[in-house]
């Protein structure tokens, strides 16, 4: 599978996660979100950028409960809860946001 951004092709696995995360650029998030009819607001981008920083520091996509806690610490309590994150990413903040951020599926996520 693959998607295109400005004429450039990006490869994904059978679930839509990018194969080469080094290739990621903001346009990739927009393109993957569009495939799932998911508009991206500043609130979405806040989570996506957080995930990219987390991956850069720890080399893993965090589990949902780890992400929730870490978001709460960094961006405030009103954002560090499942309700807020699931409203932004109805397919699951772990799965969906990690995908748009160009990260692998969170470890332990089935």
């Amino acid at each position: 599978m693959s998607f295109e951004v400005n004429g450039k092709t990006f490869e994904t696995d059978e679930e839509g996660y990018m194969v080469n995360l080094l290739e990621w650029e903001p346009g990739c998030a927009e393109a993957m979100a569009k495939l799932e009819d998911q508009p991206l607001t500043d609130a979405h981008w806040e989570v996506i950028n957080f995930l990219r920083e987390y991956y850069d520091e720890y080399q893993i996509a965090p589990a949902v409960r780890v992400l929730t806690k870490a978001i709460g610490k960094k961006l405030g309590k009103e954002k560090g809860n499942s309700k807020y994150l699931y409203e932004l990413f109805p397919y699951g903040p772990g799965k969906q946001a990690c995908k748009y951020a160009g990260l692998p599926k969170p470890t332990g996520c089935v």
Binding site: E57, Q59, K69
Partner: peptide
């Protein structure tokens, strides 16, 4: 993956 050991506390 040695960077990941720092995330163990979060887990």
């Amino acid at each position: 993956f040695s960077k990941t050991y720092s995330a163990l506390g979060d887990y």
